[in-house]
């Protein structure tokens, strides 16, 4: 699970996150909604251990990424907003390479199986990444998360640039992963998918968690109203 407790961080004296606290238990999907500059990516970078907060406590599956980043990252699968992979390699080569760096040696059969599971066809696997759409690249990153059997999944703006079908398939995959026990934290601008595809929703505003809801309690319209209410 993911635990953030009173996290604060400043850049050049400007507060980016202030007393941010949230929890994502195993098997749950938590969506963070926030405008540009709200601090969503900074929050993910702190969970990954790329940044150290000025104050507060972070735990990833019980591990403090600030102190033991390698151990924490071993438990995290991270999918950035724009999944950049090596264009000169094929989908399966990229998967094998990144999995290898993470310490997972995949056989050719396993690589294909993982790519199939995230919806990539056998014909797509040997194609170079340069010919992949954003959705296909995201699927490779998801396959990587599956290969690593990560207990925590972080996704930065996962539905940006995806067509509705790809976004729906992504949501289905995330639901599968959460049902297998993964704690999933995603950030997005996409109100529609957020209300449909998550269990908990938090609204990040000015570096603080301004509101938190059960997704089931709100319709997309109510969520939009809550998000856009006068600040």
């Amino acid at each position: 699970m993911i635990e953030l407790e009173s996290i604060s961080i400043h850049f050049s004296g400007r507060p980016v996150l202030q007393n941010l606290s949230l929890q994502v238990p195993a098997g749950r999907i938590f969506g963070v909604l926030g405008g540009n500059g709200a601090g969503k990516s900074t929050m993910l970078n702190i969970i990954l251990g790329f940044l150290k907060p000025d104050s507060g406590r972070v735990r990833v599956d019980g591990v403090d990424p600030g102190r033991n980043a390698a151990d924490a990252r071993a438990r995290i699968a991270y999918i950035p907003e724009s999944v950049a992979l090596y264009p000169e390699l094929s989908g399966e080569e990229n998967l094998a390479y990144f999995a290898g760096i993470a310490g997972c040696r995949l056989s050719a059969v396993e690589t294909r199986r993982l790519l199939n599971r995230v919806g990539l066809r056998d014909a797509d696997a040997p194609r170079r990444l340069g010919q992949y759409s954003k959705g296909m690249r995201q699927r490779v990153a998801l396959a990587l998360a599956l290969a690593r059997q990560a207990r925590v999944l972080l996704l930065d703006e996962p539905t940006t640039g995806l067509d509705p079908e790809a976004a729906t398939q992504l949501a289905t995959l995330l639901r599968e992963l959460s049902s297998e026990g993964a704690a999933i934290l995603l950030t997005t601008h996409d109100l529609w998918h957020l209300s449909l595809d998550t269990d908990e929703i938090g609204i990040l505003r000015g570096g603080c968690l301004a509101a938190q809801f059960h997704a089931a309690d709100l319709s997309p319209q109510q969520l939009a109203q809550a998000y856009l209410e006068p600040r």
Binding site: R73, A74, V83, F98
Partner: peptide
């Protein structure tokens, strides 16, 4: 420059081993 750095670091537990 390609944008693969974060993904790389996230897999390897840091950039130093890479």
């Amino acid at each position: 420059s390609r944008g693969t750095l974060p993904l790389l670091a996230a897999q390897a537990g840091g950039l130093a081993p890479v």
